[in-house]
Structure formats: C-alpha cells, structure tokens
C-alpha cells in the first residue's frame, strides 16, 4: 500500500522529471537517481519543506550544474527536441538490428530482375543463400558500427550517421518498387507466368517417335498440328523459354513441307 509520504515523494520526483525534460535522457536519469536516493535518506513527509518547491530545486540545480536555463519558450522547445532525441535513443537498438537487413532488401529490390523475393530473405543475384549470408554480414557490421559509435569516437559517430542516411535513401528509393503496384504487378505476373510455363512444360512431350504397326521406327516422318503447322518440339520448347541443346537442334534440322490439315489427297 502506498503511503501519503511515498506519494508525496513520487509526486516531487515526477515534477522534477518534467522540469528537466529538456536534458539528455541519461543526464536526467542520473540526477533523478541521485535525488531519489537523497529523499530516501531524508525520508521527509513533504520534500518541498526540506528541498524547496520542485521549481526552486530545479532552478538551483540548473544554476550549479551548468544546465541550460534560458527562457520558458526556449526550454519548451528544447524539451520537445529532447523528447524526440530520447524516443530515437529508445528505438535505436531496433534500428541497429534491422538496418542491415533493410539495406540488403533495398539492394535486392533495386538490383534484382522482376522475379525476386525481397521478403523475408532478400535474394542477391537471385540466390537466397547469398541473401542470407549478406543479411548476416550486414547485421553484424551494423552492430559493430553501433558499438564503435557508442564508445564515443566522433569519427565513428559521423560514420554511423552517414551509413544511416545511405540506408534511408536506399530504402526510400527501393520502397516504391517493393511496395507499389507496377513493379509488384510485374512480379506477380512473372510468378504466374513461371507457374504456367512449368505447367505447360509438364504437359509437353520431350520426344515423339513414329513407328509402323510392327513397331519399327519410321524415318522421315513429319508431323503437323491441326492448323497445318509442322509439329516442332524444339520450337515449342524454345517458346516456353527452355534452352535447347545443340544435339536436340541437330535432330530437328530438316525443313518439313507445309501441308494443310486435313491432308490433301
């Protein structure tokens, strides 16, 4: 059960926290941790009676700590800026974790032919294995860069900002292709075409042999379809995108004479 004394202390801390909202998150939390420990030692019924009002306490603290203590509007603006910065810092681990994958997905989208799978594993060179390896490497590099930047080196911090900007540009450039209709439609249509082609290839005979009623092979037999076109397996397979071997082509080199079906007597 929370006592009045505890409530009074918590309210005091909350007020101080809000008055220091323009400070860097870590600095503010250090100050509040010090103050909380101090109040625990004092154990006051009302902190304001010992420390003065939260406003007085913060004014005195700002003056001696060298914290910014400009006009109210300035402080409010700085508070908004600090809030954005703090939210960004809270979200940073997520960004560090996904930016490597985002970069690889962006590269896969921009560099791939229409038949690709950018999500969840980007294909690099249309190869998912390369994609997995690239994502693992990029994620490791992302964490390493964050570690170096967190160590406080200005050069690495600048490098991290540049990398972040490049990834953002890459993602923004790739997003229309990855998300919007045209490219996605091409992708979907290509997928459908691939499935149709695979279906037709499954139906298509790979070879046809003519034989007499005794089963002896007949040479020089030419087959025609119902429209009088020579039945050319090589041509058909080429139309479906199959790479036909030279041996198969040499077997099909002769030129059949066009006839009209049903055959003229």
């Amino acid at each position: 059960m929370t006592t009045t004394r505890e409530t009074s202390v918590q309210n005091y801390l909350a007020k101080v926290r809000s008055l220091l909202a323009d400070l860097d998150y870590q600095e503010r939390e250090e100050v509040l941790a010090d103050l909380e420990a101090h109040l625990a030692e004092l154990d006051p019924a009302d902190p304001s009676q010992i420390l003065g009002s939260p406003e007085e306490f913060v004014d005195e603290l700002r003056a001696t700590a060298g914290f910014y203590s400009g006009s109210r509007i300035d402080r409010r603006l700085r508070r908004v800026g600090a809030e954005i910065r703090n939210r960004w810092l809270a979200a940073r681990p997520v960004w560090v974790g996904i930016r490597g994958w985002l970069a690889m997905a962006g590269l896969a989208i921009l560099g791939s032919d229409p038949v690709f799978d950018p999500f969840p594993i980007p294909r690099l060179g249309n190869n998912p294995l390369w994609g997995v390896m690239a994502v693992v490497l990029a994620t490791w590099l992302s964490y390493r860069l964050a570690q170096l930047a967190d160590d406080g080196d200005r050069g690495w911090r600048a490098m991290e900002r540049i990398v972040g900007a490049l990834v953002a540009v890459l993602v923004l450039s790739a997003a229309p292709y990855g998300l919007y209709t045209e490219h996605w439609a091409v992708y979907t249509a290509s997928r459908a075409a691939v499935h149709e082609r695979e279906y037709l290839l499954g139906l298509l005979p790979e070879n046809l042999e003519a034989s007499d009623p005794q089963g002896r092979p007949l040479d020089g037999v030419v087959l025609y379809d119902q429209d009088g076109r020579p039945f050319d397996l090589v041509w058909l397979r080429r139309q479906l995108g199959v790479v036909v071997s030279p041996e198969e082509v040499s077997m099909d080199e002769y030129e059949p004479q066009p006839r009209v079906y049903p055959l003229d007597p």
């Binding site: 250090e30 101090h38 004092l42 005195e60 001696t64």
Partner: peptide, 29 residues
C-alpha cells in the same frame, strides 16, 4: 562518499547554507 553524506559533511564543516540542489548540481558538473 554519496550525495546525502556530502551535504551533511559540508554543513557540519560550517557551510550551513549550502543547498541540497547546489551540491547535487555541483557533483553533476
């Protein structure tokens, strides 16, 4: 030493008017 004890020692040494916030502000700086 820690903040609370520091304030106490400063006051015991004769700086009775030193404010708690001033000590913590000085420590942070």
């Amino acid at each position: 030493t820690y903040g609370y004890d520091l304030v106490k020692r400063l006051r015991e040494a004769g700086l009775e008017e030193v404010g708690d916030a001033s000590v913590y502000g000085t420590l942070r700086r």
